[in-house]
Design a binder for these strands. Sequence first.
RNA 1: GGAGGGGUGGCUGAGCGGUCGAAAGCGCUGGUCUUGAAAACCAGAGAGGUGAAAGCCUCCCAGGGUUCGAAUCCCUGCCCCUCCGCCA
Length: 457
Amino acid sequence: MGHSSGLRDGQRGRLPARSMAWPAFSGSLTDVGPQAVRQDPDEVAPRLRVRGFILDTAAFRAFEEERRQLQSQTERLQRERNTRSKAIGAAKARGEDIALLVAQVGDLGQRLNAAKAAFNGLQERLHRFLSEIPNLPDASVPEGATEADNLELRSWGRMPQIDFEPLDHVDLGAGGALDFAAAVKISGARFVVMKGAAARLHRALTQFMLDTHVEEHGYTEVYTPYIVNSASLFGTGQLPKFADEQFAIEGAGGMHLIPTAEVPVTNLYRDVIIDADALPIRHVCHTPCFRSEAGSYGKDTRGMIRQHQFEKVELVQLVRPEDSWQVLEELTGHAEAILKKLELPYRTVALCGGDLGFAAAKTIDLEVWLPGQGRYREISSCSNFLDFQARRMMARYKDAGGGASEYVHTLNGSALAVGRTLVAVLENFQDGAGGASVPEVLRPYMGGAARLDLNTI
RNA sequence: GGAGGGGUGGCUGAGCGGUCGAAAGCGCUGGUCUUGAAAACCAGAGAGGUGAAAGCCUCCCAGGGUUCGAAUCCCUGCCCCUCCGCCA
């Protein structure tokens, strides 16, 4: 314990890369982040292979060897400078002539600067190398490369009895309720304009989800900025590796549109030592999410399944390490509760290693049944990050009695993606007459209406 | 947008370019005292890197510069505060 491997100190979590702290390593090899690489690359490499990440242990060893050499050289010169300067100061205090001493220093400063530059350059490359290593998957994560290898855990609900050919949401909204053409004109592909009943349904879903999590699941609602700095994106793991997937704001010094509320909400606790009594911390937050969808060309181009802008109600928890697996189950249950209340059939799957996000140790997806497409589609993703994000952002907790601070564990999950939920409601509750019935729980949010007319806007 | 003032350890707040990693107070930890607590008194304690260890090296917002030597001087950036202007 207390063992640490920070690359740079006193500069925690700030970008650019040069000034970012590498979070410390302070635990056993079990269930720690890639920092364990520094302890035992050979132990970590096979575990990373489960998610398809090949750890270049040879490169790492080369880095370490160079680091060792440059660091000791730099520190030796620093020590010499300190010693000589102190001697000069002491001589001066005694009123002696210091000219000779100063002359003896020679080109020490030059040599030190050169050594420092070499060391800093190495540090930067090493830091980049380490910060692009994903979290270690939990032992329970199934092997596999793609979505097809995900493991179905359970399913809930009954498929709707539709005695006509079900339409998908694009056709259901073709009367203008979902206006993709308008969105193309004012923005471009992968956007939607919702009108009339659809727009109201979208708002109703959001309010319903927020109210449920606040009133029934004990979450505290937060409202956050939709634009964040790079340090925040580093903290949750979107940077440096996934810059392409974010929308950066030009000329704004590293500001980005948020890809998910996870970023601003989790980063509320960046560089914070939380009172242990305050745990668990539970936040629910509704935000738009912005994703460039780079690399998904040709994928889900029809409809509003994959958009550059969508709304999401997100659950975020910060918990004591020993509680995080239990909390993953609970948090997933909170997301499931929304689907159940909406009477939407879904199934639960454990993501395989290859499908796992960068920062997650384990992820459970909820997939809702879409009659219009005749398949299940992801509508929520609930993950345990263990201390991976906490290390990146220095989010720690401390017991009241003092003692060392420890990293919290962070979790989050969509509950739910609002746009996809709207799609699911329209497709599952379509009535074959250009409309859809409104799930009971939503009616109070829809002015009591029991049916949506999608053709009148 | 304009004009000023600032960023020092958990907090408040000192700090002539040379034993300053940094005074003091508060808070914190341990002890004495007390039935217990409070008060009082005494003692202790920053974070990190590296190394088997001794030790050595960083860190006074960040980056750069001047200097034998920078918390202290200079430049740039970021952030905060006050006033003016504009504004949902």
